[in-house]
Simulated scan of single mutants.
Amino acid sequence: MEYPSLKIGNLIVEKPLIQGGMGVGISLGGLAGAVAKEGGIGIISSAQIGFKEPDFESCTKEANIRAIGSELQRARDIAPHGVIGFNIMVALKYYDEYVKAAVEAGADLIISRAGLPTDLPSYVEGSRTKIAPIVSTEKSAKVILKYWDKKYSRTADMVVIEGPKAGGHLGFDKEQLDKFDEAAYDREVQAILAVVKEYSDKYGVKVPVALAGGIENAHDVRHAFSLGADAVQVASRFVTTKECDADTKYKERYIQAAKEDIVIVKSPVGMPGRAIRNPFMERVMSGERQAPRKCLGCLRKCNPAEIPYCITEALVNAARGDVDNALLFCGASAYRAEKIETVKEVVDSLLA
């Protein structure tokens, strides 16, 4: 099957494929650049992106802002004409400053999740950077698009629908995840598409929609397009690529994982997420508290005195390969990974 190119305003993307943002340090400039070079959209995760900077622990915000620029440049060096953007979580403590830094660096696109990005349009005003909220339900799509319409007299440049099979922090509570029904969620997707079309029609533009969450093969991609999606967003498949920025030990854990190793966990700020069971997660699930060494100011609603563990420490450990003492976020189909591939092989297999 041949898929049409993806148009986001005046941005033309050769292949309707977005590589999902994965932090900390899993999708940086190396992976994003490689995906953009193959004709898709490469996405850099801004979450504690400066963890490799020498002053990260003493000047965390400044290290992150510096790394936003350097990682985007690294991706541009790999794919000078590719489309490259950032995934920036609304829940981050310095969300507005990170968005503005990405815009100033020249990001083509900003995708926002982990909360409703109500003020995102104001941070990109006057720039060429496109914006795309991640929504999981018809209700959340209505809320954010209505808000942008009323307050900013504009709509989204693109919308990403992230389903219950996604990795990392999820826009569902545990009960919704336990009761997940694929046919019912397909209907939810079509309801979201109808909401997006309403605002597309109002503004006389085509707002493309990408479907994300558990998309692992060509069959999943065809299904997404059959529902009416204009693109897909895929994350976990790119972890086990040569070009992924994560440590080799992290990639190997995906390959070693069995289906029963994929579990729903609670992040320190209460949001559910999907991850690979490991010794660290066993300790957390048994109720053991692991006090943070130092607060690095990652999430706005985090209270170091109350959290069971520091999510920054756990995710940095993952990126560096200390996989027994790490939070290993993943999608529902991560256990299907069997080998290390190249980005080109993954892209070709998805769009076959």
Rank of each mutant, 00 (worst) to 15 (best):
M22A: 14
D186V: 01
L350G: 06
N217C: 13
E252D: 09
I44V: 10
Y185N: 08
S58H: 03
V83E: 06
F172N: 05
K150H: 11
G270F: 12
I84S: 02
C298Y: 09
D220C: 11
L145S: 09
F86P: 02
G321S: 09
A257Q: 03
L11D: 13
V232A: 10
D261L: 01
E175R: 13
A156L: 03
V232C: 11
V234K: 02
K339H: 13
Y203Q: 06
R76T: 11
G40K: 08
K142M: 14
V83M: 14
C298D: 09
P268Q: 04
G20E: 05
A318Y: 02
S46T: 10
I264H: 07
E38W: 01
K344Y: 03
A91G: 07
K130S: 07
P133G: 02
N64M: 08
R289C: 09
R300W: 10
I311R: 00
R237E: 11
P54T: 08
E97D: 15
D77S: 15
L28E: 13
R66T: 10
Y94K: 11
D324F: 07
N10A: 10
A275M: 09
I84D: 00
L351Q: 12
I131Q: 01
M89A: 14
E306D: 14
I264N: 05
G69Y: 00
K344C: 01
E341I: 00
F180E: 06
K151C: 14
Y95S: 06
K100V: 11
I78V: 15
A319Y: 00
P279S: 11
V207W: 03
I215Q: 04
L31Y: 07
Q190C: 14
P16M: 07
V284W: 08
A105T: 10
A36L: 07
P304G: 11
E288P: 08
A47D: 04
V24E: 00
L350Y: 04
P4C: 13
K15M: 11
P80W: 10
I41L: 09
A326N: 07
G204N: 08
E125P: 06
V316G: 00
V239R: 00
A212F: 07
A212S: 15
L327P: 04
L17M: 12
L328S: 03
K37Q: 12
A166W: 02
A114S: 15
P121W: 05
A314K: 02
C302H: 02
I111S: 10
A194H: 12
K130A: 13
N217W: 03
L177P: 02
D245T: 10
A191F: 02
I131Y: 02
D201W: 06
